[in-house]
Amino acid sequence: MIKVLFVCLGNICRSPMAEAMFRDTVKREGLEHKIIVDSAGTGDWHIGNPPHKGTQDILLKNNISFDGLKARQIVSTDLVEFDYIIAMDTENKKNIEKLKEANPKAEVLRLLDLLPHIVTKDVPDPYFTGNFQEVFDLLEQGCKQLLEITKERI
């Protein structure tokens, strides 16, 4: 079983969008019994809340379910339990690295590091920019590449 955790700041925009998209792709590939997907935030402001309305809208527009998604905060044990922790931006990655304790298992990387043709390596936060379509497009590309990498480890 490969475990993937997407992480952003509040876990209501980017990371739950990526979780829903990746989960949908994994299901379409018939790999839901081999890959576990989750998301979390580095902050605690939105714990227990559903995804942001903008995230919900773009997922609904693309027929992607977000049922059951609720914001949570990343904890140090996530670095032991997950194989991949995928940060949405540089600041998120730094905050994740601060949680490392002895023998972390997870590989921590920014999603857009998987896309060498993309100049910017930080997924913009639509909570501030309002551009949920841009984020969806970037996540779609990143998730496709992440799936290819993940399939190699199954």
Results as ranks from 00 to 15, higher is better:
Arg72Ser: 14
Asn92Pro: 06
Ala71Val: 07
Val135Glu: 01
Gln133Tyr: 08
Leu109Gly: 01
Lys121Leu: 11
Val37Leu: 06
Leu139Gly: 08
Ile58Ala: 02
Met17Val: 00
Ile64Arg: 00
Glu97Leu: 14
Thr150Gln: 01
Phe128Gln: 11
Pro16Asn: 01
Leu9Phe: 10
Arg153Met: 14
Glu152Arg: 13
Val108Gln: 03
Asn49Phe: 12
His117Leu: 12
Lys34Trp: 13
Lys100Val: 08
Gly30Met: 12
Asp57Leu: 14
Glu32Gln: 14
Asn63Ser: 15
Ala18Thr: 06
Asp24Gln: 10
Glu152Thr: 14
Trp45Gly: 03
Ile86Leu: 07
Gln133Trp: 05
Glu134Met: 14
Asn63Gly: 14
Asp67Ser: 15
Val80Arg: 14
Asp44Ala: 15
Glu134Phe: 14
Asp122Ile: 09
Glu152His: 12
Leu146Cys: 08
Thr90His: 15
Met17Pro: 05
Lys144Met: 11
Met17Tyr: 03
Gly43Val: 07
Arg153Trp: 07
Gln141Ile: 10
Ile86Asp: 03
Pro104Met: 09
Ala20Val: 00
Ile58Tyr: 07
Leu146Gly: 05
Gly130Lys: 04
Gly54Thr: 05
Leu5Cys: 05
Tyr84His: 09
Glu32Arg: 03
Pro104Ala: 08
Glu81Trp: 07
Ala18Pro: 09
Leu79Arg: 00
Gln141Asp: 12
Ile64Asn: 02
Trp45Thr: 12
Ile58Gly: 08
Gln56Ala: 13
His117Ala: 15
Glu134Lys: 11
Gly142Gln: 07
Cys8Ile: 02
Asp89Glu: 14
Gln141Trp: 04
Tyr84Asp: 01
Asn131Ser: 12
Ile36Gly: 12
Leu99Asn: 08
Leu147Trp: 05
Gly41Ala: 01
Ala106Pro: 08
Ile86Cys: 06
Met88Lys: 03
Glu107Tyr: 02
Lys105Tyr: 02
Gly30Ala: 09
Ile36Trp: 14
Arg23Asn: 10
Leu9Gln: 09
Lys61Gly: 06
Ala40Trp: 00
Glu29Ile: 07
Val108Trp: 04
Pro51Val: 03
Asn103Thr: 09
Phe66Leu: 02
Leu5Met: 11
Ile36Ala: 13
Pro124Ile: 12
Asp122Ser: 11
Gly68Cys: 12
Thr150Asn: 08
Asn95Trp: 08
Cys8Tyr: 08
Asn62Gly: 11
Lys100Leu: 09
Lys93Tyr: 06
Lys94Glu: 15
Pro124Asp: 10
Ile47Phe: 01
Ile118Glu: 15
Gln141His: 03
Gly30Val: 11
Ser65Ala: 13
Lys151Pro: 13
Gln133Met: 07
Asn11Phe: 04
Ser39Lys: 00
Ala87Lys: 06
Asn49Met: 14
Phe6His: 02
Ile35Arg: 05
Asp125Tyr: 10
Glu91His: 13
Leu9Thr: 15
Met1Lys: 03
Met21Ser: 03
Asp24Phe: 10
Asn95Gln: 12
Val4His: 00
Ile86Ala: 04
Val37Arg: 04
Lys53Ala: 14
Arg23Gly: 00
Lys94Pro: 00
Thr25Leu: 15
Thr77Pro: 00
Ile35Cys: 04
Ile85Thr: 03
Val119Glu: 15
Ile118Met: 13
Asp38Val: 07
Ser76Met: 11
Glu32Ile: 09
His117Gln: 15
His46Leu: 05
Gln56Glu: 11
Asp57Val: 13
Ser15Asp: 01
Glu81Ile: 02
Lys70Gln: 08
Leu31Ser: 08
Val80Leu: 13
Phe128Tyr: 15
Thr55Gln: 01
Glu152Ile: 08
Gln56Phe: 05
Thr120Trp: 05
